[in-house]
Each structure stands twice: as structure tokens, then as C-alpha cells.
Write a protein that binds this DNA or RNA. Structure first.
Length: 412
DNA sequence: TGTCCACTGGAAGGGAGGGCTT
DNA sequence: AAGCCCTCCCTTCCAGTGGACA
């Protein structure tokens, strides 16, 4: 008589003790190799506990260099200490990748201060200035010091972003009962240079730089998390060293290293293995790469998929680098096949830049003399991933266009 | 050395769509 | 219902560009 289908799975002993320790949201109490940055933040933010206004700060550093984790850790500690001293400190964290317009950022901060009986602010509809006023009112009412963290602040571009940063850096001139300090977190060292002078001088009072972790430092971070989050002696020799070395190659990205270690342990569990081997890690690495790129491709808008398809079709026909003109031409044929209105060349040029930005292609500007100026586009999708198949599975309409073009090219 | 090509990329603005206020 | 605000996606216009070629 077969038992419950979950019974067997429950019977397996997990290699994890605490899986959450490997999550991106997890903020550890101990952040190795970030003592200097923590100290710099503390020296500045301690003013909030003395009733003064901490200077605005910008934390710079590559992805996975610990900026967000350090900022969360420091703010958690600040809130704890404030509670102990009966001071009011209100941290607000906004990720500008997800919340990326002036309106929505103001709305998000104001909503975090919403009290029972307050009118809730809609996602859209109000004039932005009204949202700003509402946010100021709520800040005044709650008093104390507000610390606003703008994660990935470099993604706030254009007049709307400048205007928001202007608003936020001017808050202290409008507030009477409370104070405000701003922390920007940026991957881009040159972000501040693009800001208008009026904002730049007020935002960048203190810069804290997070150098990428080297292989040894990532090893320390992984060892610590492994000892907190995994059963004893489940990692084969060499696993941590390989994982750290791979992450160090990828610009010292500790987040990626943790993700890889977690995926490797899951692979081992899937194989009902009692230990995690280098082979599990290699398999996990492939899996992560496939998942990441596959998800990116699947979520592209239709025309962007067609532009990528145009690049891949030309590459499949032996071209190593494709010019913008050729991409446009192939793209137009595909849209004609699908009975779609094609976008303009200008728009395609921007879509190619976007594909370059998200890492699916490399688009390099070159001049071919009398052949004119153009971009040479090369796909960056690893050989093992069938991007056309991924696109077709997400957008079945593309199947005909993809196949028709292949047949056309084969017959040439 | 000037010309020319095939673009690039900034700026401005149109229009659709979603949501709120009056 | 009309008017307003905001965002997003897109087009149009156009000055600028790098380097081969005459």
C-alpha cells in the first residue's frame, strides 16, 4: 500500500539547518570585512540619537559588495538603540529598481508612515506635489529623525529623478518637528556627476566606498553562513574555495556566491546525497545561469524579443557581429511575417542598447568609414541555452517567424 | 583634407491607459 | 462625465560622429 507522497520527502534529512540564512533578504549580525564602512556609517548616524541631523551619504560599490546588507544592519542597530533611549528614528528603505518614479517613491515613504484614519494614497492619480505635502505632514506628525535609504539610486534618471532628489534633499528646510537624512546606494561611481549641481552638493556629503570582495573574503563570508545555516561537515573539500573563486571572478559578488552555494546544496539534496560536491556546484552554476537568462528572455516585450531574434538569426547564419542596419532589416522581415507594424530604426537602436544593458548582447559602436557609423551587435547568450526556443515557449506567435527565417536563410 | 556614409543619441512631443477629483 | 495627472512607449527631427576614401 503506497504511503502519502510527501512522506518520503519529509523523511529525508535536510542538509540545511536554517535555509533563510542564504536568502537575499537575510541580514546577518556579523558582516566580515565591512568594519570600516560600518564604522563610517555609525559615526554619522549617531547624530540621529543626539537629536541632530546626520549628513546625507552615498554608499558606492559593485553588486554584491554588501552595501544593502550593511545599511540594513546599521539601521536595525540604530532603531534598536533609539528604542532603548526613547528616541524616535524612522528608517524608510526604497528600492529604486522596483519603485522608480518621483510619485511612487514619495507615495511609498508616505504610506510607510500611514496611521489609522489616514487617507491612503493611490498608486497614481494625485498630483505629485500633493503626495509630497502628505508625506511632509506625516513626517512632521511622527517627529524624530527619518532616515530614507534609496537603494539603486543611480537608476533614478531624468528630470523626474532629479526633481525627486531635489525634493528629498530639501526636506529639512520644510520640516519643523522632525529631521531627515538621506542614504543613497549606488552601483555607479559616476552617478553623482550626472546630477544637477543643486542636488549634488546636498546629497553627497559623505561617500562610503565598498570595494569588491576578493576570493579570500568571500570564502570567509561563505564559511560563516555555512556554519550557521548548514549541517556539520556536509561540504566537500574544495566546494567553498571554488565557489569563492567563481564569485571573485564575477567582480566579487558575494550575493551571487551565496546563491550558488544554496543552489549547490539543493542539488545535493535532490540527489539524496549526504555531502555537497564540486559536481553539484558545477550543475548548480549551469542551472542558475539558465534560470537567470531564461527568465530575462521570457519577460522581454514582444518587439524586443523580435530584435533579439533578428540578432540570433543572423548569427545562426554565420555572421559574428551584426550591424544595426542588418538587425533592422531582419526584424522588419519578421514583423512582416507576423503581420505586425514594425518599430522605427531609432526605437530599435534604443532596444539594442537596452539588450546590451541587461547583458543579452554586446552592442559596440564602430565607424566603418564610408560604410558609415553603426553598432556591431554580438549575442552574449551562452551556447548551451537555446534562446529561440525560450522565446517561442513564452511567445508562441514567434514560432512561425523564427522558422520561416531559418528556412529562408537555409535556402540562400 | 574634405567628403560622405550610416548611423547615434538627445530633445520634444504625441497618445494610450490607468486612476483620481470635481 | 469631464478634466486632470502621471507613466510608458513610441515617433519625429536633427545635429553630431568616426574613419575610409577620393
Amino acid at each position: 500500500m503506497p504511503g502519502n507522497i510527501f512522506e518520503v520527502a519529509l523523511g529525508h534529512q535536510s542538509l540545511f539547518v536554517e535555509r533563510a540564512i542564504f536568502d537575499a533578504r537575510h541580514t546577518p549580525n556579523n558582516l566580515p570585512h565591512r568594519e570600516a564602512q560600518i564604522e563610517a556609517m555609525v559615526l554619522n548616524l549617531v547624530d540621529a540619537l543626539r537629536g541632530h541631523i546626520p549628513s546625507n551619504m552615498i554608499l558606492y560599490g559593485a553588486t554584491g559588495s554588501g552595501k544593502t546588507a550593511v545599511s540594513r544592519h546599521v539601521l536595525n542597530q540604530l532603531s534598536e538603540q533609539a528604542a532603548e533611549l526613547d528616541r524616535r528614528v524612522h528608517p524608510h528603505e526604497v528600492n529604486c529598481r522596483h519603485v522608480n518614479t518621483r510619485y511612487r517613491i514619495l507615495q511609498s515613504i508616505a504610506t510607510s508612515l500611514e496611521l489609522h484614519g489616514d487617507q491612503s494614497i493611490p498608486f497614481t492619480g494625485w498630483p505629485a506635489d500633493r503626495v509630497l505635502k502628505e508625506m511632509l505632514d506625516r513626517m512632521e506628525r511622527s517627529g524624530g529623525v527619518h532616515v530614507i535609504v534609496l537603494d539603486e539610486v543611480d537608476l533614478l534618471t531624468g528630470p523626474s529623478g532629479d526633481s525627486l532628489l531635489y525634493d528629498l534633499t530639501s526636506l529639512n528646510t520644510l520640516l519643523n518637528q522632525s529631521r531627515c537624512s538621506l542614504i543613497g546606494i549606488s552601483n555607479d561611481l559616476h552617478f553623482v556627476e550626472r546630477l544637477p549641481a543643486s542636488v549634488r552638493s546636498r546629497l553627497a556629503h559623505e561617500d562610503i566606498v565598498f570595494d569588491p570582495y576578493d576570493s579570500g573574503q568571500i570564502h570567509d563570508i561563505l564559511s560563516q553562513r555555512a556554519s550557521d545555516g548548514l549541517q556539520k561537515n556536509v561540504l566537500d573539500q574544495g566546494v567553498l574555495r571554488l565557489c569563492s573563486a567563481l564569485a571573485a571572478q564575477e567582480h566579487g559578488d558575494a550575493r551571487r556566491a551565496l546563491e550558488l552555494l544554496k543552489a549547490s546544496v539543493q542539488k545535493a539534496e535532490h540527489d539524496s546525497s549526504k555531502t555537497v560536491t564540486v559536481a553539484h556546484m558545477r550543475a548548480a552554476q549551469h542551472q542558475l545561469e539558465f534560470d537567470q537568462i531564461g527568465a530575462t528572455i521570457r519577460t522581454l516585450p514582444l518587439h524586443q524579443k523580435l530584435v533579439l531574434l533578428a540578432v540570433l538569426i543572423n548569427e545562426a547564419n554565420g555572421l559574428k557581429a551584426v550591424s544595426t542596419g542588418l538587425v533592422c532589416e531582419t526584424y522588419r522581415q519578421a514583423t512582416k511575417h507576423m503581420r505586425l507594424e514594425p518599430l522605427t530604426n531609432r526605437r530599435i537602436s534604443t532596444l539594442l542598447n537596452d539588450l546590451d544593458q541587461i547583458g543579452l548582447v554586446t552592442a559596440r559602436n564602430v565607424s566603418l568609414g564610408r560604410g558609415g557609423r553603426t553598432k556591431l551587435v554580438v549575442s552574449r547568450i551562452p551556447v548551451g541555452i537555446n534562446a529561440v526556443k525560450v522565446m517561442v515557449s513564452a511567445e508562441p506567435l514567434l514560432e512561425d517567424a523564427a522558422e520561416a527565417r531559418y528556412r529562408l536563410q537555409e535556402s540562400l
